[in-house]
């Protein structure tokens, strides 16, 4: 059986207790349990993490790059959502 017929898993690693799991890459595996073992061997050989999540790639729903205009840009014209939008006197500007 060729590698390509195996499911693809996305790998998320938590580098230290208390932090978020971050996406680090992907791999092929024949089951979620095996994906976890391969991820351990592949992604935390140098103690890069204390916890791993694996998720089969097909189970991830992602936004589309070619739809960025409609999906993300409406947020660009709302500068008042940022603290820097408000001009305060110097003496209280550390608020």
């Amino acid at each position: 059986m060729s590698q390509e017929h195996l499911a693809v898993y996305e790998v998320f690693v938590r580098s230290a207790r208390g932090l978020d799991h971050k996406h680090v890459g992907s791999l092929h595996a024949e089951s979620p349990e095996h994906a976890l073992m391969y991820a351990r061997d592949c992604y935390i050989r140098r103690s890069e993490g204390v916890s791993i999540w694996v998720v089969e790639s097909k189970n991830i729903t992602a936004s589309q790059d070619n739809d960025t205009e409609n999906f993300v840009e409406p947020m660009d014209d709302k500068p008042y959502r940022h603290a820097t939008h408000y001009v305060l006197p110097d003496s209280v500007n550390n608020m």
């Binding site: 208390g18 932090l19 978020d20 008042y80 959502r81 940022h82 603290a83 939008h85 408000y86 001009v87 305060l88 209280v92 608020m95």
Partner: peptide, 20 residues
């Protein structure tokens, strides 16, 4: 803890708009 970190980041404008 992680929810608080996210919330504090987003809330920075709330106090400033009030003071303004």
């Amino acid at each position: 803890s992680r929810a608080m970190i996210r919330i504090c980041k987003e809330e920075s404008f709330h106090q400033r708009q009030g003071y303004e």
